[in-house]
Design a protein around this nucleic acid. Structure first.
Lengths: 245, 245
DNA sequence: CGCCTACTTGACTTACTTCAAAAACAGTGG
DNA sequence: CCACTGTTTTTGAAGTAAGTCAAGTAGGCG
């Protein structure tokens, strides 16, 4: 059951130099694991959570509920991410979280985290940094959905997911599980489902990538990056690891 | 010269209960004031700043540079805000900052802030909370620019600015300085300038608000809120202060 | 096999962009 | 004080990308 600690440490180490004492402190945290079905909610808008979540496996999404009943997806989270770190210092959730495909999430009481923060400021700063990276990803999403044409918008999303998956060592060959429907893609990128389909068809036709059976396949990384106007600086990773393809 | 400390304390107090020791620590910080012209940049994309900024007066914006040479505005900051708090734990700026109208900004070395964080964790947490509120504002911008029709989109932006201005006590009567051009509004909301003008004309015609001579005038708050589908929960303010009009 | 959901495709409509030009305004210098 | 220049705002007309609507196909599961 050390998997939760492992993935958290690996993820924080991508941007922060943790000392042995920090690692010990993290390993002392008690995580409660829970499995979720595809599309199962686990934190709802309006909740006042007393636990923090950590993605142990699978993919998890944040979303806003719209007045019309629909959703706006805000971000996606992979193994090692703290998808509701934002809730640490905030009373009421302004957004919800759900599993995309099947996912395992570890929960840890806020109280325990705060105690660890007090004892190891470096650990606190690494989590803070994690929330700031989240914010940078939100900023990029604003630009993506506001200023880029449909094709670039979609390509950019796939670039980000693939790049992050790669640093989290979730890419086998040039493939990686992205259990997302066209409808959800539309609710992420702000486009109608018909447009999603046609835009995706264009991307497939370009030969740069494919999305099949819930799996993203990157065939020509440089080309996809060009199409998506993708520059990974905003992900603020210590070592830049460009996919090789 | 104490203005910088005052506005910072007032702003942090909106969401955090600071203790006398925190106030003393904050009052001990050394700020360097600088005045900026309208549209003057003061932090550029790519910079690696060693100082943090605090808006003392005026309005300040964050923006992404686009490949096409244009800008995508990401957020606006009022008196008391820390518009580049994101840079505290991040090497390289992924966005720039500029003054909108004339503005006064106070700068403080990161080193000094970190020392204060170490001494007063509550202060650190209040700044962390501030960065999380920023992130919540980014999330709302994603939804605004992706899922709302043009008129609601614009109304929502004005609602947010007015609401925040009000909690920062920057609203005189029902007016408040918003020195933003139509072109900049377009680069904020992801619409062409012609559409900005027509949408703004519609809003004016509705009688809910006006924007004249760089001043936002809210005539019917409830109506504007309705048009903008605005719910201030995401601003995470301790006391909710609905404008009276 | 039949049901349900997800994806695909086509035809039509429209909201927004683009292009272009005029009007209003601000600043500068004679 | 008023012409001259440049910028911002306003308005119009035309083109188009994306949304909507609708129907059909494919895939997954009891």
């Amino acid at each position: 059951m050390d998997k939760a600690h492992d993935v958290l440490i690996r993820n924080l180490s991508e941007h922060t130099a943790l000392e042995p004492e920090d690692l010990a402190e993290i390993r002392g945290l008690t995580f409660t694991l829970r499995d979720f079905e595809p599309n199962e909610d686990f934190i709802r808008q309006g909740d006042e959570p007393e636990h923090s979540a950590l993605v142990v496996s699978g993919m998890v999404a944040r979303y806003h509920l719209l007045g019309t009943g629909g959703r706006q997806y805000l971000s996606f989270h992979l193994t090692g991410d703290l998808p509701d770190s934002q809730a640490l210092f905030i009373d009421q959730m302004d957004h919800g979280l759900s599993a995309l495909g099947p996912a395992t999430v570890a929960f840890i009481p806020h109280r325990e985290l705060f105690r660890a923060f007090r004892r190891r400021p470096t650990f606190a700063h690494s989590v803070w940094r994690e929330t700031l990276r989240d914010a940078a990803i939100f900023r990029e999403a604003i630009t993506n959905n506001s200023a880029r044409p449909m094709q670039a918008r979609m390509a950019h999303l796939f670039c980000e997911l693939f790049y992050r998956a790669r640093t989290s060592q979730l890419v086998r060959g040039n493939r990686f599980r992205v259990p997302i429907s066209l409808a959800q893609l539309g609710e992420t990128l702000g486009m109608a489902i018909a447009t999603v389909n046609r835009t995706l068809a264009d991307l497939r036709r370009s030969g740069a990538m494919d999305l099949r059976d819930g799996e993203l396949i990157v065939l020509k990384w440089r080309e996809l990056q060009r199409l998506g106007d993708f520059n990974p600086v905003y992900l603020h990773l210590k070592r830049q690891s460009p996919p090789q393809a």
